[in-house]
Structures are given as structure tokens and as C-alpha cells.
């Protein structure tokens, strides 16, 4: 375990060293060294502008996540359990899965205007089909023998759902939450770049126009910190709690 930790930290240091060396030899403003990126990061934070935009992007990501997950889980359960619903919605699902994110974003902006509702809706539409597919797979793997136990002992519907049924889906729910979050991050930036005047995506597009690579990297790093935080302080503890019986 400890050895693995050393490997983890060691590899990070190695990457930073490699980056530093490359920047040193490249000697160009288009390839800034780690230290100048860090300096830029601190500047952007102390001016308050990075936190402002990060907050807005985080808010959008959270909204999308909280809207897309329940909808996806609900439809995944319905389609997994009822053949008729599955047959009725399957084509739409395939369409949703294969519709390019960019097209959805453009259509939402054109139809609903350049506003937050359109931005959030666009990412929700991109995300929901993937959750549905994941949960539907989970439903197929449900052990009906355990549900028979619930039937024979006449447990309440509430217990049937939350004690016998949902726990079997936890791995699938966690997996789609994880994949989901990283997908939402990525698409939200595009949405912001295309049609919002705040958020990290918008900032990045500004820096891009000025070829300000240092700021682009600084903003990306603030992002990575948040993701590591979410992974270690939200997803992992939940997973450990859920998997303690394994």
C-alpha cells in the first residue's frame, strides 16, 4: 500500500520534472514552465476572477448532475424492468447516444436562446442516455432469487426497493456517476465557450484568443484540483461505505 503511494507521488514529480526540462529547452511563451503556471494560478485566484468563474462552472456542473442522474436512473429502471417501455424508447435512446454533443448544444442555444437554461439542458440531454444505458444493464444483472425471498416474507414495497433492489444497482450507479461527472465537465466547457459570457469555458476561450497559454494551463489546474477533491472526498468514501460487505 505504502509502496503504491510512493509510486503515485513519484510519478507526479517525474512528470513535473519532465515538463520543467522541456519548457527550459523550448524556451518559448507558448510552452510555459510549471513555476510560471503556478504564479499565474495564484494571480488569477488572488484577483478573485478565477474563483468567480470556477464557482459558476461548478454550479452548472452540479445542476446538470443533479438533474441528469435521477432522470437517467428512473428511465434506466423503467426500461430495464418493462419490455414495452424499453421497446418504445430504445430508438430514441440510440439517437440520444449517438447525437453529437455539439449539435445538441447548437440546437439548444438556437431554440431556447443563449441562456443558462439552454446550456444546462444541452448537457443534460447529452448525459441522460449514458446513465440510462448503465442502469438498464444493472437491472439485467439483478438477482431475482433475492427478490423471491422478499416476496415470500412479504416485505414492504419500500424495503423491497431500497433493501433488496437498489443495493444490487449501486456499482452501476456509482460507475455512471463517475463517468458522468467527467463527461459533464468536458461538455460544460464547450457549452460555455459557445454561448455563455462567464464560467471557465468562457475564460479559456478569451485566453485562447490572446494565446495566453500560461493562463489556460493555470485554469486547467484549478479544475484538476477540484476533480481530485471530488474523487477523494466524495466518490471514494461513498464507495468504501457501500462496498464494506464485499
Amino acid at each position: 500500500m505504502n509502496n503504491l503511494l510512493y509510486l503515485r507521488i513519484g510519478s507526479v514529480f517525474f512528470l513535473i520534472a519532465l515538463w520543467h526540462l522541456t519548457a527550459f529547452f523550448a524556451d518559448s511563451p507558448l510552452f510555459p514552465a510549471p513555476l510560471s503556471v503556478l504564479r499565474s494560478l495564484i494571480e488569477h485566484i488572488s484577483s478573485g476572477e478565477l474563483l468567480h468563474h470556477l464557482g459558476i462552472t461548478l454550479y452548472r456542473v452540479a445542476m446538470i448532475f443533479l438533474i441528469a442522474m435521477p432522470i437517467g436512473i428512473a428511465f434506466g429502471l423503467l426500461m430495464g424492468n418493462f419490455k414495452k417501455i424499453d421497446a418504445a424508447l430504445d430508438t430514441l435512446l440510440v439517437l440520444g447516444l449517438n447525437m453529437p454533443a455539439l449539435v445538441v448544444i447548437m440546437l439548444c442555444y438556437i431554440w431556447f436562446g443563449l441562456n443558462d437554461v439552454a446550456a444546462i439542458l444541452a448537457v443534460v440531454i447529452n448525459k441522460v442516455p449514458m446513465v440510462i444505458v448503465n442502469i438498464r444493464e444493472g437491472v439485467k444483472a439483478i438477482d431475482t432469487k433475492l427478490l423471491e425471498v422478499a416476496c415470500i416474507y412479504k416485505v414492504s414495497r419500500y424495503r423491497l426497493l431500497f433493501t433488496f433492489y437498489i443495493p444490487q444497482l449501486y456499482p452501476y450507479i456509482i460507475a455512471s456517476a463517475r463517468n458522468g461527472l467527467s463527461l459533464i465537465w468536458k461538455i460544460v466547457l464547450v457549452v460555455e465557450l459557445l454561448g455563455r459570457s462567464d464560467g471557465i469555458g468562457f475564460q479559456l476561450s478569451m485566453f485562447f484568443q490572446f494565446f495566453d497559454i500560461t493562463s489556460i494551463l493555470a485554469y486547467s489546474f484549478s479544475f484538476i484540483v477540484i476533480i481530485i477533491f471530488i474523487e477523494n472526498f466524495i466518490f471514494r468514501p461513498i464507495e468504501v461505505r457501500i462496498a464494506k460487505w464485499r
Partner: peptide, 16 residues
Amino acid sequence: KSIGMMFQEPRLLPWL
């Protein structure tokens, strides 16, 4: 009112 049953497998819920 209630019945009890044992199956070919124990059928315990692994998460409880």
C-alpha cells in the same frame, strides 16, 4: 399468516 422458506442456496443479502 406468514411462511418461512429455505432454498437450495442460503439466499442471504450479501450487503446486510
